[in-house]
Design a binder for these strands. Structure first.
Length: 478
RNA sequence: UCCCGAAUAGCUCAGUUGGUUAGAGCAUCUGACUGUUAAUCAGAGGGUCACUGGUUCAAGUCCAGUUUCGGGAGCCA
């Protein structure tokens, strides 16, 4: 029976002394042959376990090494030392699992994120990653709570899809055909009729189109699942396998969509502010120290907590694409020719342009709407001006695009003509078009990159550090 | 995929204009220590200088290629 143990978080939170507890966890450090800093992952804070002299023999004391797992029974007492208000005075101590200190890679010292990335199977045991992944959990929980409170249905859209129409990026092929002897047609191409599904299939790049089908029945749905892009992207904000949240709402226009997205992001941040105070305090300090080593010009003006509170307390800036281009054209940066890429109406804004708007001009999250139709997907609703579509991107400081969404084109004829213009196979998409044939309604939705949200909230600058086991080009360890 | 940079002890790094036996801090090990906070003090061990080839009397150092990693860009969430 192991479950009569008490979690460290509850001991520290209660601060109640005089009772006997059994705690289990992993040794972070063992000081002075007497003090164990014990962590069980329930909180970023360690429990100090005091091993009274004479309780354990020399052999046992030697086995209390960094990384070892121990079971301790003892009394919760007020701490004499500084740094913690209560501690556990051990009555018995048992080594559950040894950890050879010469071989255990984590040492009681600061490690670089790059090194920890190589030992991702152990990095959960560090302060930083403990905090990051507790926050990630809270965010995931808050996502479901937010939508549940609003009557949204959580819809599981497929992971394997046969649709290649969305054009959201390169896809991973799913097949059971033998790679070196796949059946071919007369023209030499692969005969997918022989394949498992009888057609060519891929891993999903988005659940949106299926999500729209759900919204046309439940009114409001959301998806939250893994998404796959086979792009050869090597950046601090792209993964080959990532998690995305895609709400889809019937009877919503673009403004309703913006309101929901902004409310959603603020809700998530608020949830973490309220439920992960210790983790955020640690991450705030971690980031502050990292900032110190950067040159003055590259430092962030706000600390992590300050930034999160600011985002929650202020309205996002809302501008049209046309206004955004005007701001860029009027900007000192443009006049001093600081931009590498051309600025004019019709361009797909580059990172440098988005960063300027968010980090220099507005200094807060910005929602840009009504993009030129030429640079956006076929399903976005065509505006009256017949030049732009009802798209919206939310740009966050330090991250870039965190949300991409739109009001969808609900008018069958306009949708079909746009699909034909963009060479989307209309016949294959008949199931999608049925929503516009039978009881079509104005609707809208967006996608939020979950890892980018975790990055924003934790202040981690590399997306590989906010997912347990990152999948990126040339890297699929663990 | 493109541009830039890096690779030296378990980790983080230093290593001069190419020149004897490659250093430091932390970690580890041994010993000391009854109030420590990444404990402290004393001592010890620990290196295929990423890999392959080249230049040279001589290469950790210079050159070429390869690999891996990091930052930026593109694609996007």
């Amino acid at each position: 029976m192991f479950n009569n143990r008490t979690k460290i978080k509850s001991i520290l939170d209660a601060g109640e002394t005089g009772r006997e507890v059994t705690v289990m966890g992993w040794v972070r450090t063992f000081r002075n042959n007497q003090f164990i800093a014990l962590n069980d992952g329930s909180t970023n804070n360690n429990l100090q376990v005091v091993v009274p002299l004479g309780l354990a023999d020399d052999d046992t004391l030697k086995r209390i090494t960094t990384g070892a797992s121990v079971k301790v029974t003892g009394e919760v007492v007020p701490s004499i030392g500084k740094g913690q208000s209560v501690e556990v005075k051990a009555n018995s101590i048992e080594i559950l699992g040894d950890s050879d200190a010469e071989k255990y890679p984590l040492q009681p010292k600061k490690h670089s994120l790059e090194f920890l990335r190589e030992i991702a199977h152990l990095r959960f045991r560090t302060n930083t990653f403990g905090a990051v992944f507790r926050v990630r959990h809270s965010l995931a929980f808050a996502v479901h709570q937010f939508f549940n409170e609003r009557g949204f249905v959580y819809l599981h859209t497929p992971i394997i899809t046969a649709s290649d129409a969305e054009g959201a990026g390169e896809m991973f092929k799913v097949t059971t055909l033998p790679l070196n002897s796949a059946p071919t047609l007369e023209d030499g191409s692969i005969d997918f009729k022989e394949d498992f599904f009888g057609k060519s299939t891929n891993l999903t790049v988005s659940g949106q189109l299926e999500g729209e089908l759900g919204a046309m029945a439940f009114s409001d749905i959301y998806t939250f699942g893994p998404t796959f892009r086979a792009e050869n992207s090597n950046t601090t904000r792209h993964l080959a396998e990532f998690w995305m949240i895609e709400p889809e709402m019937a009877f919503y226009d673009l403004e309703d969509n913006m309101n929901l997205a902004e409310e959603f992001i603020k809700y998530l941040i608020n949830y973490v502010l309220q439920n992960n105070a210790d983790d955020l305090a640690f991450l705030d300090q971690r980031l502050a120290e990292e900032e110190k080593s950067k040159p003055q010009a590259e430092r962030n003006e706000m600390g992590l907590l300050e930034k999160l509170r600011f985002v929650v307390d202020n309205n996002f800036e809302r501008i049209t694409y046309t206004e955004a281009i005007d701001i860029l054209l009027q900007s000192p940066a443009y006049k001093k020719k600081k931009f590498k890429y051309e600025v004019k109406w019709g361009i797909d804004m580059q990172s440098e342009h988005e960063r300027y708007l968010v980090e220099k001009h507005f200094k807060k999250p910005v929602i840009v709407i009504n993009y030129p139709e030429g640079i956006k997907a076929f399903y976005m609703r065509q505006n009256e001006d017949s030049k732009t579509v009802a798209a919206m991107d939310i740009l966050a400081p330090g991250i870039g695009e965190i949300v991409g969404g739109s009001q969808r084109e609900e008018r069958l004829d306009k949708l079909i003509s746009r699909m034909e213009k963009m060479h989307v196979p209309v016949a294959e998409m008949s199931w999608y078009l049925d929503t516009r044939r039978f009881g079509s309604v104005p609707h809208a939705g967006f996608g939020l990159g979950f890892e980018r949200m975790v990055q924003f909230v934790t202040g981690m600058t590399n997306i590989r550090d906010v997912i347990p086991f990152a999948r990126t080009p040339q890297n699929c360890e663990f």
